[in-house]
Design a protein around this nucleic acid. Structure first.
Length: 286
DNA sequence: GACAATGTTACAGT
DNA sequence: CACTGTAACATTGT
């Protein structure tokens, strides 16, 4: 999944296909994936799907919610009669469902099924009272985001500048810090810094007002593109119908080490920052 | 076999 | 206490 556009794409799919269904039974094949009051799910109807940063919340009609983080390799795949004819499931899902990566199966009314697959098993599913979702550490500490989908106030340019000014460390890890700004991960952080022509190693508080403004706009630009094309499916990500996204075809610098920068011709460089692959053009990112 | 992979999170150190 | 960096989580693919 993984970053805001991917999770939002899943949310839109679940909002369209899952809402209104009754969860008749939750079948848990890998017990550690699901924690909380599991028995509360049985017999409830799905009310709506919310997204907070990279987290998803399936709200049920009994004041309980299913809070989810799919981390790197989680997939939600919906199978039901309402799925449009001709929908092509990506090979990233694997031919048959359930398969070895399937850890939770939601049995729905009308014979529909929702599968949760997660190859690396890093994701989590927590059953809690809807009122307690924001007591969960991930949601409680989540910073504001550029494209909130569930009623939150969007991050403003002024707030963004304030966050940069308050941070002495390098700009790139800051963009990915979910406690400061929600929803941005490695792909979009790399690409936005390229679009804004800012070196990822620059100290956040030393960026000029113009640079911080350019970066804010660049983030909006790359996230909008990601949303428009249904997210990036470089790895395991697929939407709620099992269909891959296309942002990987629009990567600016992510995964392009050694390739020529389309802007200045210099070779894209790969370094490691805060343990993550970092891609930038030494020629035009200053 | 070594290494890296969209993300948190716990822990050690400063 | 606040901040920073590293390892860990588990699996697959190169």
């Amino acid at each position: 999944m993984p970053e805001l556009p991917e999770v939002e794409t899943i949310r839109l799919g679940l909002q369209k296909y899952l809402v209104g269904h009754t969860i008749e039974e939750i079948e848990i094949l890998l017990p550690k994936m699901v924690v909380g009051e599991v028995q509360r799910v049985t017999g409830t109807k799905v009310k709506r799907i919310q997204r907070y940063g990279k987290g998803l919340v399936i709200e049920l009609d009994n004041n309980y919610s299913i809070a989810i983080h799919i981390k790197m390799t989680g997939q939600f795949i919906y199978k039901g009669t309402r799925v449009p004819k001709g929908t092509k499931v990506s090979e990233k899902v694997g031919r048959e469902l359930p398969n070895s990566a399937t850890h939770v199966i939601f049995h729905l009314d009308k014979g529909a099924i929702l599968y949760y697959n997660d190859i690396r098993q890093f994701g989590w599913i927590k059953i809690v009272k809807t009122a307690d979702v924001f007591g969960l550490p991930f949601f409680k500490e989540l910073g504001p985001e550029l494209f909130p989908s569930s009623g939150q106030e969007p991050l403003t340019q002024e707030q963004f500048q304030g966050i940069l000014k308050a941070s002495k460390g390098p700009i790139k890890p800051l963009l990915m810090d979910q406690k400061k700004i929600g929803g941005i991960g490695n792909i979009y952080a790399n690409d936005a810094l390229y679009v804004a022509k800012i070196d990822p190693k620059r100290k956040a508080h030393l960026l000029s007002e113009q640079e911080s403004e350019a970066l804010f706009e660049a983030l909006k630009q790359v996230l909008t593109k990601g949303l428009e094309v249904g997210g990036a499916s470089e790895w395991q990500y697929v939407n709620a119908l099992g269909v891959a996204g296309n942002y990987q075809n629009f990567f600016q610098v992510y995964g392009k080490q050694g390739k020529k920068c389309p802007r200045c011709g210099e070779a894209i460089k790969k370094i490691v920052m805060a343990g993550r692959g970092t891609f930038y053009c030494p020629g035009c990112q200053k």
